[in-house]
């Protein structure tokens, strides 16, 4: 049983090599998803590294990442498979004469139809199937990490479509039959929680919530992403961001913003935070004018606290 602990610790260090600092919670869920072959549904505010986790996982597992970005109106012809209509049409034109040869000597219409029936549905075979991300992930020879990003943006119908894939790793194509995965992909779904997902979908997934990290963890993340930054500046920066998150903001600064800010401070050759510097670069951290207006008068007290 300590085996599990060891493997999870290994996973954490492997992810760290890819520049992803994972908490215990994240690593445990990822480990379980791999062992139990379950999809993971990741929720959390934007910018906490949901998509990044999929990237890092793909790198650790040394498997290709197949990404499907969801949006309103996404349907199976864009997500799952489509028929190559133009290729079918082209073949029909090219093979017209061939068809005449085949059909030569048949008697009457019913004879010709009978003959055609014997030829099978050649135009609806896998050669004419255009695999989209979901099918690509299933058919991958080496296994894959399938990232279904922002599932909450897709319609309800699409959620139902996913159920079969998530539960059995199989896809029904009416003209061909069921296509099963050669290697079961690791599926990662992310959601920004703009709407409730259906219970059926949630039931099939392991659930992982990634909140804004604690100061210590965020410090380590910044350190791994922006290693050139000085110790003092990093500490100040993380503390500052944490106190900014206490405000009622339209958009809370996420980890990605913290990293961006650290990079821009580095570019400005800063080695510690001061008022002028923060005021000039606040728009990297906060994305709304209202938020900036809210924070600006508090800058001095915020800076005093983070010293």
């Amino acid at each position: 049983m300590t085996n599990a602990r060891q493997q999870i610790d290994t996973l954490i260090s492997q992810l760290a090599e890819q520049g992803y600092i994972a908490s215990d919670n994240i690593a445990t869920t990822l480990y379980l998803a791999k062992m139990l072959e379950r999809p993971i549904l990741i929720e959390g505010p934007p910018g906490v590294g949901k998509t990044e986790l999929a990237n890092a996982t793909a790198a650790v597992l040394n498997q290709p990442l197949v990404r499907l970005q969801c949006y309103e109106g996404l349907d199976e012809s864009k997500a799952l498979y489509d028929w190559k209509y133009s290729k079918q049409l082209l073949y029909v034109q090219v093979l017209k004469e061939k068809l005449q040869d085949v059909l030569a000597g048949t008697e009457g219409l019913s004879g010709a139809v009978e003959k055609l029936h014997q030829l099978d549905d050649i135009f609806y075979s896998e050669h004419f199937l255009e695999p989209r991300p979901l099918l690509q992930a299933l058919k991958s020879d080496t296994g894959a990490v399938l990232l279904i990003d922002e599932i909450d943006k897709a319609d309800y119908e699409f959620e139902s479509l996913l159920l079969e894939i998530l539960a059995d790793f199989k896809v029904s194509v009416p003209e061909i039959g069921r296509i099963a995965a050669t290697h079961k992909p690791l599926v990662i779904l992310t959601s920004n929680n703009t709407r409730d997902l259906s219970d059926a979908l949630k039931r099939r997934c392991l659930h992982l919530y990634i909140p804004f990290p604690e100061a210590d963890l965020e410090g380590r993340i910044v350190d791994s992403r922006v290693p050139e930054i000085s110790e003092q500046l990093r500490r100040q920066l993380v503390e500052f961001v944490h106190s900014v998150r206490q405000f009622d903001l339209k958009k809370q600064p996420a980890i990605s913003e913290t990293i961006d800010w650290a990079r821009s401070l580095l570019l400005l050759h800063a080695d510690k935070l001061d008022r002028q510097l923060v005021e000039d670069s606040l728009n990297v951290l906060l994305k709304y004018e209202e938020d900036i207006d809210l924070v600006r008068p508090e800058l001095s007290s915020l800076l005093r606290n983070s010293h």
């Binding site: 049983m1 300590t2 599990a4 602990r5 869920t29 659930h207």
Partner: peptide
Amino acid sequence: QLGYRDKTLLYHGLAACLA
């Protein structure tokens, strides 16, 4: 998969599939 020994692990693991 996780065993009952490590409670923190069990806590996170069960959380993933129950909550």
